[in-house]
Design a protein around this nucleic acid. Sequence first.
DNA 1: TTTGTGATGTGATATTCATCACACTTTCTT
DNA 2: AAGAAAGTGTGATGAATATCACATCACAAA
Lengths: 240, 240
Amino acid sequence: MTDTLQRKPVSQVANSDCFTEESLTKLKEIMYEMRAEAGNHLFWEGDTADKLYFLKRGQVKITKASDEGKSFILYVYNTGDLFGQVDPFQNSVHSFNAEVTENSIIGVIQQKDLEVLLWQHGDLAVEFMKWMGLMHRMTQTKFRDLMMFGKPGALCSTLIRLCNTYGKSHGSDIVITKKLTNSELADMIGATRESVNRMLGDLKRANILAMENNYIVIKDLPYLRDICQCENCPVDMCRI
Amino acid sequence: MTDTLQRKPVSQVANSDCFTEESLTKLKEIMYEMRAEAGNHLFWEGDTADKLYFLKRGQVKITKASDEGKSFILYVYNTGDLFGQVDPFQNSVHSFNAEVTENSIIGVIQQKDLEVLLWQHGDLAVEFMKWMGLMHRMTQTKFRDLMMFGKPGALCSTLIRLCNTYGKSHGSDIVITKKLTNSELADMIGATRESVNRMLGDLKRANILAMENNYIVIKDLPYLRDICQCENCPVDMCRI
DNA sequence: TTTGTGATGTGATATTCATCACACTTTCTT
DNA sequence: AAGAAAGTGTGATGAATATCACATCACAAA
């Protein structure tokens, strides 16, 4: 059995898992809560990056738009995820947009407050670095997967990551418990909707996956893993 | 004048610049020195990641090989750069290879020793996070550039990054003071040698760049910036 | 029920890029 | 100086992927 199948139940998987309960509590104490409606933006590229965000509930996508109107989805964050540009103590500016894609409840952490907290608590600082490192490695491995194995490889890698983020085992099948449009998948891998549609069609015909009331169900994970030369990275790193 | 042209002299630009003199000294105190010859590997994917490396002199490339024998160059580190997988305090394993491409003198830092140092010195810990954040943003922006603007965009972005890393102004020209083969450039952008050769040919014909005794000389930086929709990120972020 | 809207599926065609093949040049080796 | 090895340049061709143009489907709103 692979790591991918040993994952915890969906609802408990989030990138804030690499913090201890105590640390997370400390972080929560310096947050102020905010609600954001689907369609709004948390920040735009060019905005000052001086906050961290903890997604208490909802979904936020980190995207980049090109001049020609194409959009690239770099990350999708869900309930329990912590995100934001995290070069604390540096006057910097966002390179990407944060689009709220589901009505969300968000805990906002001011850089200033974070600074103080990290100074006070060495153990939190250490966990924070751990989290930063994990996020970086997630970016690096995704980069590799999207660059090295063509569009089919990029799609297969993305499907695996979706399993690790939203997957629910059902016998030997894995249901991706999150509705995704072809366009969304396309924007995640830098391809067109049509290409994704054709690739998914191929995978369905080959019985690698199926659609069950509009959810993607993975029937043959090893096949996907083979296409993108998946090395079975830790689940918390191999995410969307 | 762009940031790109306001850069410090080549020899002084390195990613360890985001540390203060004192912090760097502290780091240097816990290093042990090592020599590595061109062609050797500092680590391979799968090796335990429990060290940081400070390149006192030389060059190291971080690469990934595919099953079909293609190689992808993720980073190129030079004299003064600090690198290594930096999720300290985590049992993790390298996802990439570190290939020594010039005879090098390397300061090696054990994770254990780093841990202690970071605990003792809050200010160093803060700078360390800053450095981690910077490296992550470098990865993210490179990812965007290589994914969103086709191979010509990827090449132009890479040339700009090479200017920021190895560039020397010469009037309005910028000499990339580092010999690069077409194959190397190809591996940096996930293209073939032939494609790079043709793209460079086009750029030469259009007077965007020229070769001067085997060094690339950029004549029209704004053109390159236009192709990859460069936003003039800080120079220390926009590197190879 | 009708109508509008977003999503899916698919053919035809165009573009981008890789592959193959080979000549030529430069640099290194002895 | 001669030969080997590495790098460059370029045509011909093919594969991967995007683009365009529709038909169809699913579902929500009026």
